[in-house]
Design a protein around this nucleic acid. Structure first.
Lengths: 210, 210
DNA sequence: TAGATTGTTAATCGATTAACAATC
DNA sequence: TAGATTGTTAATCGATTAACAATC
């Protein structure tokens, strides 16, 4: 369990799923869980869970399994969720509004700290509990407040420009809802939410009767 | 290029990205593109694009590249996007509303054909251009209209129940926004939109300074 | 023709799974 | 103690990349 080895990204992406499932188990009052039981819940093999966790340390007990509360705490800590991260939202349209109001985002380690839009009609008005600022002030606000994460919810043709400004201001992780691939320098993380592509990859199978 | 070999799912998932990039190229008036040029746009290697396409046939010309319009047509056809797919949306809350109104969904091969909600206050009222039906009528409507795809936008604790009803009524592809892993029988496709997990997998890197 | 780029094969790389000694 | 389950190693599987003959 040499903690020096950087875990593959595919492993890091699974950790939040483990954490979520453990959170449900905790709510259900389950105290202990085996890799097999946890795997059954989220359709992952027991071996994979144990292997994944082994990148970060030893968390279980032979013959017993894992203490739900303790493992959850450990994973949250590994993911950096023992603190809260300020996230900027760019785009206060229909989508941005849904994101702000979506309660899920108010949970675990994430909070939307600033909202920006280029439309003067939106600027100065509250979206949920946050007053929308003009996009011209992105750089200044992000820098001043040391915000490191941002959600991009602007049209595709504006996404790259917004990303450039954000990165320049110090943002190091982007979640983009815009249907375009962003070019970013090394050291900046980008992930996409792309429901249309996901649907399109399923029509493939339906079109040929599975 | 034996078309008999089923392409890996990871390849199928990339096809929509190729199609989208080609669509942008088409709008830009670009007539021909090489695997290298296409790859540069979407951060994929040229070899991967050529290999991916080879699962489905031969679409390029040596020394030249690919005809943008023709390749786009071919990929759309492979993905089953030469027709339009009726999709049911379950959940007419904040999220469901954003999904209905999101113009992206009105494009390429997908249209939302029915919306359901369990809240009597929402039933009978229009969401965008569609009148919300009660969740009790999911099975009947889906069966009667032969709908094969559905988007789940209900709270986590209702998602599995909704999935069960949908699958029973003949749905074979689910896109779920609910933060829970669904159990489905073989032959049913499920994909997830999970922005919170995505953010959580990036805090991992930020927390340790990349 | 010379230059460019495909489609495909083989080599490499990486991720998943199986197996089992250690041990609770 | 006997049974269960971990953490880890080795084997397997699958995906990506490199290389190049074919050919436009």
């Amino acid at each position: 369990m040499s903690r020096a080895v950087m875990p593959p990204d595919v492993v890091v992406r699974r950790l939040p799923l483990y954490a979520r499932s453990l959170r449900y188990l905790l709510h259900e009052g389950v105290l202990s869980v085996s890799s097999q039981e946890l795997g059954d819940r989220i359709n992952v093999t027991a071996a994979q869970i144990r292997k994944d966790l082994s990148y970060f340390g030893e968390f279980g007990k032979q013959g017993i399994g894992y203490d739900v509360e303790r493992l959850l705490e450990q994973i949250d800590q590994i993911l950096g969720l023992d603190r809260s991260w300020a996230v900027a939202l760019i785009g206060a349209g229909q989508l941005g509004e849904a994101i702000v109001r979506y309660e899920g985002f108010r949970a675990q380690g994430i909070h939307i700290a600033a909202v920006f839009d280029a439309n003067p009609d939106k600027v100065g008005k509250p979206l949920g509990t946050i007053v929308v600022q003009h996009s011209d002030s992105i750089a200044q606000t992000i820098s001043a407040r040391g915000i490191e994460m941002a959600i991009i919810a602007v049209p595709a043709d504006r996404a790259q420009g917004v990303a450039d400004v954000l990165i320049n201001a110090g943002v190091r992780a982007l979640l983009s809802y815009a249907p375009t691939v962003l070019q970013v320098p090394a050291g900046v993380w980008v992930r996409y939410i792309d429901p249309l592509s996901v649907l399109h990859s399923m029509t493939f199978y339906l079109a040929r009767g599975e």
